[in-house]
Computed example of a mutant assay.
Amino acid sequence: MSAFFFSRRLALETTRCSRRTFSTTPRWHADPWPLPHTPQHLSNTQTPSDIPPPTPIPRPGELKETLRARLVYQSRKRGTLESDLLLSTFARDNLGSMDEVELKEYDKLLDEPDWDIYYWATESRAPPERWAKSPVLEKLKIHAKNEGKVVRKMPPL
C-alpha cells in the first residue's frame, strides 16, 4: 500500500510542478509548431538570402510526357498541406497547356523550399531576383488568388 501511495503522490506532485512551470511560461514561446502566418512562423520559415539556389537533378533525355507526369506527382507530394493543395491544383489546371520551356521552369521552381513557394505565390513575401519576372510564378500567383472563389480539393493522382 505504501508503494501505491508513494507513486500516486509522486504523480500528483509532478502534475502540480508541471502545471506551475507551464503556467509561468507563455504558451506561444514554447510552441514547436506555430500556426502559419503568425510572426513566429514567418521568422522560422525565412530562407536566408546568402544560400545559393538549389541545383536541379540533371535528367538528360527525359521525355516531355515523363516530365509532365513527374511534375504532377511532385506538385502533390510536397510536405505541407498548403503547398500540396496550391501546387497540385495548379498542376492539374496548367501543366497540360505548358510548353517544354515552362515545364522546365516549373521544375526549377519546385526545387525551392515549400514555404518560400507558398509565400511567393500568395504574395506574402517578395520572391528573389531569380524568380521576380518568372511567367510561371505569375501564373501561380493568379492561381493562388482564386478570384473565382473555387472550392479546391486535392486532385486524384
Rank of each mutant, 00 (worst) to 15 (best):
S97K: 14
R76V: 09
G61L: 12
L109A: 01
L87G: 08
P53T: 02
L87S: 00
I51E: 08
A132V: 09
K77W: 13
L85S: 07
R76W: 07
P48I: 07
E100Y: 10
D116A: 15
V72R: 10
A69Q: 10
R130P: 06
E82P: 01
Y73V: 14
D111F: 12
T45K: 01
R68S: 10
T80N: 00
K64P: 03
L85I: 13
N44E: 08
R68P: 02
R130D: 08
K139H: 09
L103E: 07
W131Q: 11
D107T: 02
E138Q: 15
T45Q: 15
L95Y: 04
A126P: 07
P60M: 04
Y118R: 11
Y118M: 03
D114P: 00
G61E: 08
E82K: 02
S75A: 05
P54R: 12
V136G: 09
E102T: 05
S134T: 06
L110G: 07
Q74E: 12
P48D: 14
P48H: 06
T47E: 01
G79M: 06
W115L: 12
S134D: 01
I57R: 13
L110Y: 08
K133W: 00
R76P: 02
Y119W: 15
E105F: 03
T47M: 12
V101D: 11
E138V: 02
S134G: 12
E105V: 02
L95A: 07
R125V: 08
R68W: 01
S97G: 00
V136P: 04
S83A: 15
S83E: 00
R78Y: 06
R59W: 14
L71I: 04
P56Y: 07
N94M: 00
S88Q: 09
K77S: 06
V72Q: 11
E105L: 06
M98G: 05
T80G: 05
Y106G: 02
L103F: 03
E112V: 07
D116Y: 08
L81T: 00
A91I: 00
G79E: 04
G79I: 02
A91H: 05
Y106S: 00
P135Y: 13
D84K: 05
A121Q: 05
E82L: 01
A69M: 09
S124C: 14
P128A: 11
L86R: 01
E62W: 04
L95C: 04
P53C: 09
L86V: 10
A132I: 02
G96W: 03
P56D: 03
P53G: 08
P56A: 11
S124Y: 15
E112G: 01
W131L: 14
L85H: 00
D93A: 15
E112N: 08
R78C: 09
G61M: 01
V136W: 04
T55E: 06
K108A: 04
S49Y: 10
Y118E: 01
S83T: 12
P60W: 05
L63H: 13
A126N: 14
I117E: 08
G96K: 10
